[in-house]
Write a protein that binds this DNA or RNA. Structure first.
Length: 165
DNA sequence: TAGGCCATCTGGTCCT
DNA sequence: AGGACCAGATGGCCTA
């Protein structure tokens, strides 16, 4: 059972704990999963994806379900990590809506604008060359990131020298 | 009540 | 081979 923050909703998850409980419960969850699966596969929209060439695994229905549940759990953990990262980002972005939690899209947009602002501030302060912000693509994650840190440090250093003379 | 936002499930694909 | 990543689907909660 997972509880969402904000008391928004309580969602029933078919997790391994439930799976390993008493047989009646286990059977119920199994049936629920299979029903859900049938509903999806028997839906109006047929999957247009080309089946992979990978050999079919000789797993029983139960094994398949167990692996599915494990996979679900991993995916849940991954999403939780992603949400933690979003939360960490929210906490470092200055914004006016302190009482309302920023949505994910708002967080990303604000972060982008914030970075842009800081970059232009650094650029103005250092008065030197700085790589163009637009069109840098993947470089943001590595090379440019280091350059920003170096530029920030230099800017701060020069600023410090000027103001402490 | 419609629309926005979100968590979760799921199956395909990529990567190690 | 198996885990990570991704995108689509689904359904719940909240607000205007």
């Amino acid at each position: 059972m997972k509880t969402k923050t904000k008391g928004k909703k309580q969602r029933q998850t078919v997790d391994k704990e439930a799976f390993s409980e008493e047989p009646a419960m286990r059977k119920k969850e199994l049936e629920k999963c299979l029903r859900h699966k049938e509903r999806r596969s028997g839906g109006s929209k047929e999957s247009s994806k080309v089946p992979t060439g990978r050999a079919k695994r000789p797993w029983s229905t139960k094994d398949r379900l167990l692996r599915r549940l494990e996979s679900n759990e991993r995916e849940r953990q991954r999403m939780h990590k992603l949400n933690n990262a979003f939360q960490a980002l929210r906490e470092v972005i200055p914004h006016v809506r302190a009482e309302n939690k920023l949505s994910k899209i708002e967080t990303l947009t604000l972060a982008k604008n914030y970075i842009k602002s800081l970059t232009s501030i650094i650029l103005n302060m250092s008065n030197g060359h700085f790589p163009a912000v637009e069109g840098m693509g993947g470089a943001w994650g590595s090379k440019l990131h280091k350059e920003i840190i170096v530029a920030s440090s230099l800017s701060f250093f020069f600023f410090f020298l000027k103001t402490n003379r």
